[in-house]
Design a protein around this nucleic acid. Structure first.
Lengths: 314, 314
DNA sequence: TGTTCCACAC
DNA sequence: GTGTGGAACA
């Protein structure tokens, strides 16, 4: 039966140890089909009006940078996925191949300068290809995303106000038959906010010793521990607020003590998003996936979920 | 017949599509012969008078850097070629193996601090070997090129005034029976000046999508477009002058609109020369090779010619 | 694969 | 001016 085989396809390293939480089960494996439609020809010469046919989606981002960083942070976890656009914004949700981690991005309409999306549309994108296109944007460029009705391409326009340069790319889309996973709104037993660079540093440091880390939150603080062949490591943080540097605050809210173990490989991967936000929020409850959240401007966010390792291995 | 076979030796990818302009046809294929003469021994110990025999050529370059960068930029296109020296300076002209691209370098006498060349002499050099020798020069070293009458070696002296170090190398020469190609002085339909880094960036960006780029110059601006499997790309520049940053100027001079297609692989290769000059000049006419020129100090230059792809493929 | 250098962004 | 990221070279 296909569900079981999809479970068993998990990366050998994790096969025996990782709990696949039931909230993340897809009912059907994602199907990916290249669109057979031929690509629409490049839009008319620049500096003329480009949208000569009906534009369903038009979303202008002041800093191309933002999308660049978001895609960079998730492209190693997910190869192909839908950008689900509707009038409230652009959402992306996808599990990684091993079904251990889940990415959930929400770019709210208010994060764009003008935002318009007349109808729900799912834009199936290969993230490697998108990365190639986004590399062509200068960080300070203004990025506009456009799609037509029943689109076969995503149109990306980079404007560099400074140097009178205008770049336009059409990225071919694909049909991705992807379930939108319902992620339950969980009340977490522990919620930790800390500087995103500090979380990154801890993950990188412990990665040098071990493949997994235990995160233990108690009223005294939060403790990251790991054990490996060359030695053991432990980093403890206490709640701490810094009046003049609130970026450096560490805040721990706790209803009950929690202790869970996670793969460091995934956490280090999530930390690629550190450039998107000064602070990161970790939410934990026993038996439930860890939530790692980077808040973006305008109540947009980039969230990663990671299934805990079970069996309390060292 | 040898001419035909040399034409057919063109890289399979380009065989059918690339125009080999008649101006670039060599009458005979280049013949390369290693000199059998034994190399002259290293000159007497440093800080003594080095030129103990009659020196035909003596050319002192304030910055070894310049020659280093020039050779770096062409060594992947051309393996062996003559440095043709006469009293007006040092010239190099060679086609790449596929006869699609041509390099033409001119280092005018005035680019050297003292320059002396008593008689025309062709110094046949293997550019890979020259690169190895030039790597021994610090970028700020003063470089002096010397050759004797009927030379079998090119003598390179690096002086680092700062640290009182003096290095001397003798590079073995070879006889290269190479036609000097007459490049007609063309009036181009379009001449575009732009920052060399920007041209490099555009070529690299489009390279991510396709193997070839169309360059389209019109009175509205210049447009670089490409089409590939993952999508299409277009970058448009308009004439633009920047009072305080003239390096960033984009200047387009046009007598008639032009549209030509070129191999990005070669253009990217040319862009290695970007470090030689802040700005680059592109000259285009229909049916004629593109000229990419990097102007150097003292009206010296490094020019690349590239045959257009014909057949207007997408 | 790791290191070094260069260009861009802040 | 400094710091970071990408590309070239060993």
């Amino acid at each position: 039966m296909p569900e079981a085989s999809s479970r068993n396809s998990i990366n050998a390293k994790y096969k025996t140890r990782l709990a696949i939480p039931p909230h993340f089960q897809q009912t059907t494996p994602a199907k990916i089909t290249k669109l057979s439609r031929t690509p629409r020809s490049l839009a008319a010469f620049c500096f003329q009006e480009i949208s000569f046919s009906y534009t369903l989606l038009e979303a202008r981002l002041e800093q191309a940078d933002l999308l660049k960083k978001v895609v960079d942070a998730i492209k190693d976890l997910v190869q192909d996925c839908n950008f689900d656009c509707n009038d409230s914004g652009v959402a992306l949700q996808a599990m990684d191949n091993s079904h251990v981690a889940l990415v959930s991005m929400m770019l709210k309409a208010e994060s764009f300068s003008p935002y318009r999306c007349d109808r729900n549309v799912a834009l199936g994108v290969n993230l490697t290809s998108l990365t190639k296109v986004l590399r062509a944007a200068q960080n300070e460029d203004i990025l506009t995303l456009k799609a037509e009705d029943a689109p076969d391409v995503l149109n990306l326009v980079f404007e560099s106000s400074a140097s009178d340069r205008l770049s336009e790319y059409d990225l071919k889309l694909m049909d991705i038959d992807q379930e939108h996973l319902g992620i339950p709104d969980t009340e977490y037993a522990a919620t930790i906010s800390m500087p995103s660079t500090e979380f990154k540093r801890i993950c990188m440091d412990l990665m040098a010793l071990s493949e997994s880390v235990s995160i233990e939150a108690s009223k005294d603080g939060v403790k990251f521990t790991c054990a490996g062949d060359i030695g053991n490591g432990a980093v403890t943080l206490r709640s701490h607020s810094n009046v003049d540097k609130p970026d450096l605050d560490v805040d721990i809210e706790l209803t009950e003590p929690v202790s869970l173990t996670f793969s460091l490989k995934y956490l280090v991967n999530f930390c690629k998003a550190a450039g998107l936000s000064k602070s990161v929020k970790l939410c934990l409850s026993n038996e439930v996936p860890l939530l790692v959240e980077y808040a973006l401007a305008g109540s947009s966010y980039l969230r990663f979920y990671l299934a805990p390792k079970i069996g309390d291995e060292e």
